[in-house]
Design a protein around this nucleic acid. Sequence first.
DNA 1: CGAGTTTGACCAGCGC
DNA 2: GCGCTGGTCAAACTCG
Length: 446
Amino acid sequence: MEAGCENMVLNSFDGHKFPVTLHENGSSLINEMDFFSTDASQNRLTIDVKQEQHQQDGLLHQELQLNLNVGSNLTTTKTTGCNGGSLLTSSQSAHKLAMLQAQLENMRRENEGLRSMVTQVKEKYTYLQRHIEENIIPHDTTNGSKMINTVKEDTKQSLLVPLELKSGSRVDSPDNIDDVKFDSSKDGDRGGAVEASMRRVRVAVRAQSEASVISDGCQWRKYGQKMAKGNPCPRAYYRCTMAVGCPVRKQVQRCAEDRTVLTTTYEGTHNHPLPQAAMAMASTTSAAASTLLSGSKSSSDHLNHHLTPGSMLSSYPPHLTTTLSATAPFPTVTLDLTNPRSDHHIRPPPFHFPFSTNIPSINIHNKPLVVGHLSGQQNNATKFSDVQRSAQEMMNAATAAVTSDPHFMAALVAAIGSIIGSDNRNNGGDISNDKNDNNLKRCQNS
DNA sequence: CGAGTTTGACCAGCGC
DNA sequence: GCGCTGGTCAAACTCG
Ligand SMILES: [Zn+2]
């Protein structure tokens, strides 16, 4: 590099591509950030700033080309280049230089922030991958069956209520798209039923609440109540009554061990406009459903999606955990708003990232049904590893899909705020609160 | 009287 | 095939 020249800064660090390109028309394009690429040759993250000066029509033109890449092993080199600088007066040059330096300083700070974010995400990804390899995906097919049984037991002990709105559930109305999809199972279309059921996504919310339902701004009608096995508290079934034929349903049940913890599971997407108060929860469930859905469609492609969790999740309560259960056939996203310190002993050992951060942990549960079928049907090691791989892909895709969807994250924040707020307001909003409170007391006294 | 709840019955899936 | 379980229906009931 040529000493004495100025203003060419190259920042680069190993990591992942995150190109930001300034186009000729001045607009910038931020491409996808690939945190998960295994191609080391592509994992170079650089900031290229090229200052070009040239004369055209007697006027001096300056172009600033930016190529911002982000990575985790930042090094900064400063090179210089003199190209036509003599055409500028010293004052003009100094002014532009100062501006460019200010710009570069801003970019440098931005880069620092991004670098730390990338480092954090990379660490979490590594830890997650290790956890999956060690605890979820059995390495040794000879003892795979044993491990599967262990996982199955863990899942049984889970207090994350296993809600399975069956694919054969009956139809409410013909315009109910979701339920029409269900109904294909009754027509003997087993393959379609399996495919449809695989796409069922539920969003469960665990929250500590004195009331027996959490307020979500929607209008619900109770259509059933059952005693669930292993839980003295009944499970209540509600459907949305804000519009005729709305497919959204929810199930409410208390935890047997800690009856202050209420699990509410939502399924479906509203087919009608919602009041502001209901938007948070509704958008959470629908976004979760859509992201998981897209994740299952495009599989591991979602791993290549950029993650931008840090800034979005900074307002999360530190004890919030998000559980992504890929339990076949219905993946469930569980938002755990309870304090882990109070009920940790009654839940299966969750997978927590060992970092002190405001980003909520993502718990991955296994796929007991699919894996369970495996143990019975597929003793062949090759087939076994295939399904292992697909299971891992599915979980990876689902994880990436949920965590990378800004819509989902934003909705999550809103939903959590709504829930916490409603708790403080003693859960106003649902029609049946008084009676349900009585039910709760009955349950708690029993 | 309408809206919502209660509760026993019914149905389907699944495991044994 | 049978029993268990989860999910839903619908008649009876309650409440405002
Ligand atoms: Zn609705």
